[in-house]
Computed example of a mutant assay.
Amino acid sequence: MSATPRIDLASVTRLTELADYIVPFTIRVMCDLAVADHLVEGPLPVDVLARRIGADPAALTRGLRALAGRGIFTEVEPEVFGLTPLAEPLRSDHPFSVRECFPLMPPDIYSWARLTHSLRTGETAFGHVHGGTRYYDHFADHPYECVRFERSAESVNPFVLRTVAPALDLAAARTMVDVGSGHGTFAAGLLVRHPELRATLLDLPHVVAEAPQVLAHAGVADRCEIRGASFFDPLPAGADVYLLKTIIHDWPDERAAAILRNVRTAARPDSRLVIIESVSRYGNHDDTGKVMDVKALALFGGRTRTEQEFRALLDDAGFRLLRVTPTSSMSVLEAVPAVPVPENGPTAGSPAVAAAGRSV
């Protein structure tokens, strides 16, 4: 006989909030319309705000009221809206702005609508929806979506940098290769903090094309070299540090190991590998990495790994894991070469090398 369910209205309310996608979608539209940027000087009547952003006043009122009820924006008087602390990070000029973090990208949305396929089969919903196309291969033919994705990924870097920089010991390093660097905002932040450091940014050509302006804005362009290439191709050799920030979780074990072997081939015996990733742990604690693990399942085909799984991947690639340092955002994993390059490492003609590589 089944147990009688508890009557807990608070749980029902909380579950309804967590399952709702109306509020998340509305937040993303407000980001697209740059609503918070137009409220920096103070509250505005909705008709004025709508005129400035190119929206319908009545429709905009409905969206803003829905968010104001959740503490995002505030209706200070009828049809006059302003910012709240929760809305402030939606400003473009906020030090930890998340405005670019929440793009509404139809290819992603169609994939999430087929998440059931991923949970039933273990395959990506993205590939299922888009005829077997891999996530990052899609961007090569859709430059606008590629830029939006990269800006989304880069937008969290100021926060991640602030949290992980204290755990990164780069004082003795003089050269660094950022493998899968994106537009270079994370590397630029490290270079600002370490004036003696020089860096090579490596990512696909259509991705690093955006890097020069990022580096110039940070004032570190003279200490950077930019290379447009896949991280399945041979990497720049002999650097003090090889950085892999949020790369490994995008890939299944075989390809993740191929990336690490590529780094091992390029590394000196005294080089250091730094991996910045979420590390999965057993238990019921709230962890962004657990949520991102579902994203990796649905879109990329990778996964969030445990410390033991990282250790096994690194051992297979010829690295020895030294330490794992958790931070409030991600963990910093440090490894050093341990054995000669594995004889079965990736070769120029292997499928792994031929595949395109990207970061998230």
Rank of each mutant, 00 (worst) to 15 (best):
N157V: 13
I275C: 12
D270T: 07
D141M: 02
M330F: 12
V29N: 09
L244I: 06
H138R: 00
A216W: 01
R51V: 09
L202N: 07
R272C: 11
H117Y: 12
V220H: 08
A36M: 03
F139N: 01
H285Y: 14
A267K: 07
S359D: 06
G189Q: 01
G63M: 10
P57M: 07
I276E: 00
E343D: 09
G42M: 00
A58P: 09
A10H: 12
L273V: 05
S97A: 02
R261Y: 09
A218V: 02
V177M: 02
L64Q: 08
G301E: 06
I226L: 01
H206A: 06
R65F: 03
A58Y: 15
R255W: 11
V46C: 10
A55S: 13
G132Q: 11
A140V: 15
F300S: 11
D286C: 01
T325Y: 10
T4P: 04
S111Q: 01
R52E: 12
T121D: 02
I72F: 10
F310R: 03
P85E: 15
V274F: 06
F73R: 08
T288F: 11
A19R: 15
F102A: 14
G219W: 02
D250A: 02
A188F: 01
A153T: 08
T327P: 12
F319I: 03
F81V: 11
P252G: 02
V360K: 11
V76D: 04
R255I: 06
V332G: 10
L168I: 05
S280W: 09
V48M: 08
C146P: 00
D137P: 12
P269E: 14
W251D: 01
E154Y: 09
P205T: 10
D250M: 04
M30Y: 00
F25C: 04
G302C: 05
L313N: 03
Y136H: 15
T13W: 14
E88R: 10
S278D: 13
R320Q: 13
S271A: 10
G238E: 13
A68W: 11
L49E: 05
T16S: 14
H128T: 10
A199H: 02
E307A: 14
F231M: 15
L33I: 02
P158V: 04
I72Q: 05
M176Y: 05
K295F: 09
Y110V: 12
R174E: 00
E307T: 04
H117P: 13
L321I: 03
F186I: 08
A216C: 02
G318H: 11
